[in-house]
Simulated assay, not measured.
Amino acid sequence: MDVNSNRVLSGSDGKVWVNGELWAEIQKIEFKITGNFDSVNFVGDPKEHSRYTGCSSEGTITLNKTYSRGVKMISDAFKSGVFPDITILTKVTDKQTNQSERWELKEVLFTELGHTIEAKKTITQEMPFKFGDWDILETISA
């Protein structure tokens, strides 16, 4: 199997939109979907088996703090208990083939709000979130 190192994706070729708005100051986005499993055991069988019971999903956006992105929206939601409908779309493109992988995260709820200031350091803001659904809109083929 031949592997071309130029085909390895770079985060610098990625983009993230929140509710259709490009958030260019994002330093990093990470998210994961984790399966939940119950242990299933049988008499006479020493092995542990598993049964899928559902999944959970969470992530974090890390921003280079350039302005108060999302602060008011999240603060208002925590105070009122009324959370806005939020969708996150990610896209990373292979410049060699112009193919992209795109994910759409739906039912996004930002779960924390905070602020850090440290002398002689650039400021970043972490925005943890949970999401209830997702679609993989596009994939990159070999």
Rank of each mutant, 00 (worst) to 15 (best):
D13W: 04
G14A: 15
K15Y: 10
K15P: 00
W17G: 02
V18N: 00
E21D: 10
E21N: 07
L22V: 02
A24C: 02
A24L: 13
E25L: 01
Q27A: 12
Q27G: 02
K28L: 08
K28S: 09
K28R: 09
E30D: 09
F31P: 01
F31D: 05
T34H: 01
G35P: 10
N36A: 12
N36G: 01
D38A: 14
S39G: 08
S39C: 02
N41Q: 14
N41T: 10
N41W: 01
F42W: 06
V43Q: 15
D45E: 12
P46H: 06
S50F: 11
Y52T: 06
Y52H: 13
G54I: 03
G54E: 03
C55G: 07
E58M: 06
E58H: 13
T60L: 08
I61Y: 08
I61D: 07
L63M: 11
G70V: 07
G70E: 13
K72I: 07
M73D: 06
I74P: 05
I74N: 10
D76Y: 11
A77F: 03
F78V: 03
F78A: 05
K79W: 03
S80N: 07
V82Y: 07
F83I: 06
I86N: 04
I86F: 07
T90I: 08
K91M: 11
K91N: 14
Q96T: 15
Q96P: 05
S100C: 09
E101T: 14
E104I: 08
K106P: 02
E107W: 03
V108Y: 00
L109P: 05
F110P: 06
L113G: 05
G114Q: 03
I117P: 03
I117V: 15
E118L: 04
A119I: 14
A119F: 10
K120A: 12
K120S: 13
T124G: 11
Q125E: 15
E126Q: 06
E126D: 10
M127C: 15
F129M: 09
F129L: 05
F129I: 09
F131Y: 11
G132M: 04
